[in-house]
């Protein structure tokens, strides 16, 4: 295809959009709205993933050991645990270090003085490789009652966050698919209106020997432009909205681990842009191909 043809196609596509202004506007707005919802769910998913992975990282199992144990018994127990499957890391925490840490952390609360001497036992801090392995691991470790006084772990909250993020991902996916197909339908119909408006022109093009590609290109460009404009509107709205929402949340819940890295956000906005453009072009392609198929 020669470069001069390109100008021809672009001109043709603008003529087409100008001829059905209202539908073109509606198509752009629909793409924008769907992409905003899509982008919102992407942002939500990224944040939930970030949140759960932070939690899982912090998910430690703490084994509080019996006071009666000797150093060598502790050493021996530690080695036994280390050989178990699914353990990511284990660290021995000396009761004196733990006490120093505790004193440092809770100095302001004034309980240090009341307690007096160190009440803490020795403990072992242990991380598992997979979150799902925690429960069986804990019940297994509890059986070592000669060594273990108590096992503490924060599984409940992790489970809840995990299941919520699963749900959000599923719901998001369903919603995105629904929105995506309805957007596609609207684009198909919008472009079909411009195709129908130019049916005569198309049949004359075929008459003088235009290839299908030649006929399709102006419409594909039209779909592309509709998609891009819809995507730009969506991305602008999303980034302004997310920053505003983020600031509001952080202002009231300061430790909320929201994703603000430019790289990650840019990635999401890129996905939104690509999806919008793709839907625009796919819609155009479907409506023109349908039209071309019925006409010899």
């Amino acid at each position: 295809m020669i470069a001069q043809d390109f100008g021809f196609f672009v001109r043709e596509s603008f003529i087409g959009m100008n001829r059905s202004r209202l539908m073109t506007f509606i198509a752009m707005a629909t793409i924008a709205v769907s992409l905003i919802v899509f982008g919102f769910f992407l942002l939500l998913t990224v944040n939930l993933n970030n949140f759960t992975s932070l939690l899982t990282e912090k998910l430690e199992v703490r084994l509080f050991l019996k006071h009666s144990l000797t150093r060598s018994e502790i050493k021996e127990f530690q080695d036994r645990i280390r050989r178990l499957n699914g353990i990511k890391s284990i660290t021995f925490v000396d009761r004196d270090d733990a006490w120093a840490e505790f004193q440092k952390n809770y100095k302001s609360m004034g309980i240090v003085g009341t307690v007096g001497k160190n009440p803490l036992p020795h403990s072992i801090s242990l991380h598992v490789q997979k979150e799902a392995a925690i429960e069986p691991m804990v019940s297994y470790l509890k059986k070592f009652d000669y060594y273990v006084d108590d096992v503490v772990y924060g599984s409940e909250i992790a489970k809840r966050v995990e299941s919520f993020s699963q749900f959000a991902k599923g719901a998001g996916l369903v919603l995105v698919l629904l929105l995506g197909s309805s957007t596609l339908l609207i684009i198909v119909n919008t472009i079909r209106l411009t195709v129908l408006a130019r049916q005569e022109e198309i049949s004359i093009m075929r008459l003088v020997g235009a290839t299908n590609l030649f006929i399709q290109l102006p419409f594909l460009i039209e779909g592309f432009i509709i998609g891009v404009i819809g995507a730009v509107v969506a991305i602008t709205t999303l980034s302004i909205g997310y920053n505003w929402l983020g600031d509001t949340i952080v202002a009231s819940v300061p430790f909320m681990p929201l994703v603000f890295q430019l790289k990650q956000l840019m990635f999401i906005y890129c996905i939104v842009g690509v999806v919008g453009t793709f839907i625009g072009m796919l819609g155009a392609f479907i409506s023109v191909s349908r039209m071309l198929r019925y006409q010899l």
Binding site: L207, G209, L296
Partner: peptide
């Protein structure tokens, strides 16, 4: 997909002109 090339070797005129 070859039809367009066939049509380039045939000119066609009509009673109703079919002009844009």
């Amino acid at each position: 997909r070859q039809v367009p090339y066939l049509r380039r070797s045939i000119g066609m005129i009509f009673q109703d002109y079919k002009l844009l």
